[in-house]
């Protein structure tokens, strides 16, 4: 332990700045990308080409809008899953998040919130930054464990998330049942709402403070201007996050499955042909 703190002290500046940086790159960039992908479950409905791989009969059964939403989302998920060195990317992300989380907790423990006495807006944001950090740790762990590592015992459904049935299995994981929503589903949905909101806030506010930490914004007016930018970005991400949740909550699981099955069929050969190419890359 003594060695650890010695290491910490020797490389304090580097660790501090890596902590700040890791929140933006890769974690922040990934979060933005992730929310962009997920929100297609809502915004896919404006994607007129999304139902190209869905059989006309299925479209008739589920409706054009669902076909577009699930079609777009599944297309994005498949794209990601076909990226080369996906595991490497994933591991990098997990390590970054763990690094950011562990150091973040260490740093957060050096402070002591005093909003009761100094109820200034900036001070509230300081305290919220730490609170949302803690929430995000639990949330992201739950999120990854249940959906990526298949720890279904923590989920209201037994069915693990599948990247080839991304929308339906996630909707199931969120609501716990194919139709409507159960008690467990309400809890998980609320947790998702709180968790994703906290994560987005943490990123937006973190971007604002990072600009001071790195010395990009110095004057009060520069900090205010950059604050508007961060607030705008935060609002946009918040919109994406909430619309994703609403999109998944309002999804009919059986309809989604039908669309996914069509897409899988249309896609199957593609997967097979690309595999050897990926191997050749090694």
């Amino acid at each position: 332990m003594g060695n650890d703190s010695g290491f910490m002290n020797r490389h304090y500046f580097l660790l501090r700045r890596l902590h700040s940086l890791s929140g933006i790159l890769p974690i922040g960039v990934f979060l933005i990308n992730h929310l962009l992908t997920n929100s297609t479950i809502a915004w896919g409905l404006v994607n007129s080409r999304a139902s190209e791989n869905v059989a006309p009969g299925t479209i008739e059964q589920v409706g054009e809008m669902t076909a577009r939403r699930v079609g777009t989302f599944q297309h994005e998920v498949t794209f990601i899953n076909e990226m080369p060195f996906l595991v490497l990317i994933e591991v990098t992300l997990w390590v970054s998040i763990a690094f950011h989380a562990i150091l973040g907790v260490y740093f957060a423990r050096t402070g002591k919130s005093n909003t009761a006495r100094y109820a200034y807006q900036d001070n509230w944001r300081y305290s919220l930054q730490r609170l949302t950090g803690y929430i995000a740790i639990f949330y992201i762990f739950y999120h990854v464990a249940t959906l990526r590592w298949g720890w279904t015992f923590m989920s209201p459904t037994d069915e693990p998330w599948s990247h080839s049935q991304a929308a339906s299995t996630f909707s199931l994981a969120l609501r716990g049942q194919a139709q409507g929503i159960g008690f467990g589903g309400i809890l998980v949905s609320l947790f998702y709402f709180v968790g994703v909101t906290a994560s987005v806030y943490h990123l937006a506010n973190g971007l604002w403070t990072a600009a001071i930490t790195w010395g990009l914004t110095i004057s009060e007016s520069a900090q205010r201007r950059w604050g508007y930018v961060c607030a705008g970005l935060g609002a946009g991400l918040m919109l994406m996050a909430w619309s994703s949740l609403i999109g998944f909550l309002l999804l009919d699981v059986n309809h989604a499955r039908a669309v996914e099955a069509d897409m899988h069929a249309a896609h199957g050969t593609h997967v097979e042909t690309t595999l050897p190419v990926a191997e050749a890359d090694h």
């Binding site: 304090y12 500046f13 501090r16 700045r17 740093f107 050096t110 402070g111 005093n114 100094y118 200034y120 900036d122 001070n123 944001r125 300081y126 305290s127 930054q129 604002w208 403070t209 001071i212 930490t213």
Partner: peptide, 9 residues
């Protein structure tokens, strides 16, 4: 300065 939490009180 790295330990500043930007509460700005």
């Amino acid at each position: 300065v790295g330990d500043c939490g930007n509460a700005q009180n």
